[in-house]
Structures are given as C-alpha cells and as structure tokens.
C-alpha cells in the first residue's frame, strides 16, 4: 500500500501581469490505506493541491513522492485513480464502457477476463448492474457520480484522489452517496485523498481532516478521526460526529472572521 509524502509544497499561477500564490509550503503525509480529507474555504487551492498530487500540475516549489516515485510515474503505471468534480462521462459510451475506459488507455496491461470480473463487481457495488447498457443521458445526477467513482476505482489504484465527489447533488442523494463512498473506500483499501468544502463529508470519510487557510493555503489544523470504516449514516447522526463537525466548523468560521477583520 502506498504512502504519500508532501514536502513544502507551494504553487503559484503566474500571468504576464501578476503572480497568484495558491499553496504555501504545505507539508504532510498520507499513510497507507488512510483516508485524508482536505477541507477549506472556497477558492483556497484545494483542487490545485489535488492536481499537483495527481501530477497534472507541476508545483512551483516542493516535492510530492508516492512510495518514492513522482506522481507522473504512478499515473503512467495506471496506479492512480482520479475522480473529478464533474462526472465527465462520455455521452456516446454506455455506463459499462465509461467505467472500463481507463483500461483502454495508455499501456494495455490488463487481462480481459479479470477486467470483466472487476467491472461486474464494481457495477454491483455501486448498484448499477441493471443500468450497465444505459447511456449517461438516461441517468440521474447521483447515478452519474457513482459511475464516475467506479471509473476511478476500476483499475484498483494504489492512490485514489477525489475532487468534491458530491458537488452539485441534492441533500438526499449526497447522504445516500456518502455511505456508499465509505463502503467503497473500505473495500478498496487504497490510500485516499478527498477534497471537499463540506465539513460533514470531510469528517464522515476522513481518518484525518486537514483544514486549510484562505489562499495562499497553508495547514491551519489537522483533526484526527479514528472511527472505523465503513461509516454508516447512523454514525452521521451520532453526538460524536456532530461534535467533530461543530469543532471543525468553528475553526473555519473563526478563520473567516479573522480574515474579514
């Protein structure tokens, strides 16, 4: 299982006129099989951090190592799964074909029968077996998100990165998917980093919650949370869970007030 080490990571977007610092000397580790959630105010650089972790962006300063390798190397070996904010499904491919897409790209290193087994298994977990031949236009928003999640997990990645996996969904669907994602994370046992701006989601999924400050983001606080996975919606109703949510919310509100002053 993989260990992610982020060391003094800084990133700035530069244009001809200005330099916009987004990340400021972030250092932390994500241990094997751990789920770390990144929580912070909107526009603080959470998604930029995730893109750096995926090797889609080269950071201005600092290093990221996954088991001693650069993220780009892991990506080429297809050992990295990424779930985008938007499901980004292909309208011309069925649910099954969308999920299987990663196996068709880059180096072809999968065994077809094994892939088929994993695909069936994944469809079963996300409760979409009956929809395998449907097209994205025939799915609800929640189903699209579940399909995108299955696509990120189909190659059984060592590291899973999820960017706001429930963005744009209604409250009921969010609740339902929160539980399903927790089950998936328990089954896959991969090192996971999830970015979200929802305090509830961050606490529900994370073994540790990293709270970021406003841009340029630095680490404000790390909250430990050792409740076993899979976490159920009953747990989300517990006093312990709500206390943690309140604690994190207070920290974020305190930060906002200090920024406004």
């Amino acid at each position: 299982m993989s260990r992610v080490v982020i060391d003094r990571l800084s990133h700035a977007f530069t244009s001809r006129k200005e330099k916009l610092a987004v990340l400021d000397k972030l250092s932390f580790e994500v241990y094997p099989e751990e789920v770390v959630t990144i929580l912070g105010p909107s526009g603080c650089g959470k998604s930029t951090l995730l893109r750096c972790l995926a090797g889609l962006l080269v950071p201005s300063e600092g290093t990221i190592e996954i088991d001693g390798q650069f993220p780009a190397t892991l990506r080429q070996k297809k050992e990295l799964g990424f779930g985008f904010q938007e499901p980004s499904l292909m309208d011309w491919r069925t649910v099954a074909d969308n999920i299987a897409l990663p196996s068709e790209l880059g180096i072809q290193n999968g065994v077809p029968s094994e892939l088929k087994r994993r695909l069936d298994d994944m469809l079963n977990i996300i409760q979409m077996t009956d929809f395998r031949r449907h097209y994205p236009s025939q799915l609800s928003a929640g189903m699209k998100h579940r399909t995108a999640l299955a696509r990120a997990l189909i190659l059984e990645p060592k590291v899973l990165l999820l960017d706001e996996p429930l963005a744009g969904l209604d409250l009921l669907t969010r609740r339902e998917l929160m539980g399903q994602i927790s089950i998936l994370l328990e089954r896959q046992k991969c090192t996971t980093v999830i970015v979200t701006h929802s305090v509830e989601e961050a606490i529900f999924w994370g073994d540790r919650v990293i709270l970021l400050t406003h841009r340029p983001a630095s680490i404000m606080q790390i909250v430990e949370h050792r409740e076993r996975h899979p976490r159920t919606l009953t747990y989300a109703e517990s006093i312990e869970f709500h206390n943690l949510v309140d604690q994190c919310s207070d920290m974020i509100l305190g930060l906002s007030q200090r920024t406004n002053e």
């Binding site: 990424f82 292909m90 897409l101 068709e104 790209l105 880059g106």
Partner: peptide, 20 residues
Amino acid sequence: HFRELFDVYGATRSQYLLKA
C-alpha cells in the same frame, strides 16, 4: 471536459483523438 481525464490514465495522442 476530457483532457485531464485522459492525462490521468496516460492516454496517447491518438487514443485521446479517437476516443474523446
């Protein structure tokens, strides 16, 4: 819509052109 998705999985240029 698809550039980053295909980059994540190390797609070649021709794969990106033909599949996306």
